[in-house]
């Protein structure tokens, strides 16, 4: 493990982190070990987020740093790293709502926490969630919505999932989502931020 790399990523030293990855690879470092360092750094960022020491800018920038590192590392991977996935989640912003930032952050945090995530994008109709659940067989569905007009589409989506026989858990989240809306939508849980979403999903899959 490169403690230096973990620290650079966790401290948002974007250029230095990417440069160090290139240097390490040139020196023959194991690409899989670099991806492990990324996960270790994300775990630190996640802890800092929960402790109120880092916020949305850091989550977004961390995602960007990891994307750049991944672009450098992936071509060097001789075999796909067999990381054991802890569970499957279908994510999407509900119909009528085109906001993606919150959904993207949750998707990213689930991914770095070992979940296999299928991201359906924004303005996703209930039928598309139903279809994805049939194909992907997730344990958890995450519904994102930034606006108050997401309340009814969330409710309709939960209803459609249940009617289609989905027996897994549904979590909802977004700026104006609270316990009242969880009950209204008939969801199993709501998360006030990305870390809460990860905690919910982990608790449901027993990770």
């Amino acid at each position: 493990m490169s403690e230096q790399l973990v620290k650079l990523i966790a401290d948002m030293e974007e250029e230095q982190a990417v440069a160090l990855v290139k240097q390490l690879l040139d020196q023959g470092a194991d690409p899989v070990a670099i991806l492990d360092d990324c996960r270790a750094a994300m775990s630190i960022i996640g802890q800092r987020f929960e402790a109120g020491e880092c916020f949305v800018p850091e989550l977004i920038l961390a995602g960007e740093i990891l994307r750049q590192i991944s672009d450098v590392v992936k071509p060097r991977l001789t075999q796909t790293a067999e990381t054991k996935k802890v569970g499957r989640v279908v994510m999407g912003t509900v119909e009528g709502d085109i906001h993606d930032i919150g959904k993207d952050i949750v998707t990213f945090m689930l991914d770095v926490n070992g979940f296999e995530v299928q991201d359906l994008g924004v303005d996703v109709p209930a039928a598309k969630f139903v279809e994805a659940v049939k194909d992907f067989q997730p344990q958890v569905v995450g519904l994102s919505g930034f606006l108050t007009l997401a309340y009814d589409p969330m409710k309709n989506t939960v209803k459609a999932l249940r009617e289609a026989g989905f027996t897994g858990k549904v979590m909802i989240g977004g700026g104006q989502i609270d316990e009242q809306i969880r009950q209204y939508a008939g969801a199993d849980g709501y998360g006030k931020d990305a870390m809460a979403a990860v905690a919910l999903a982990k608790s449901w899959v027993g990770a």
Partner: peptide, 9 residues
């Protein structure tokens, strides 16, 4: 007064 309350309360 929360929007959630005005909508779903």
């Amino acid at each position: 007064v929360p929007a959630s309350l005005m909508s779903a309360g």
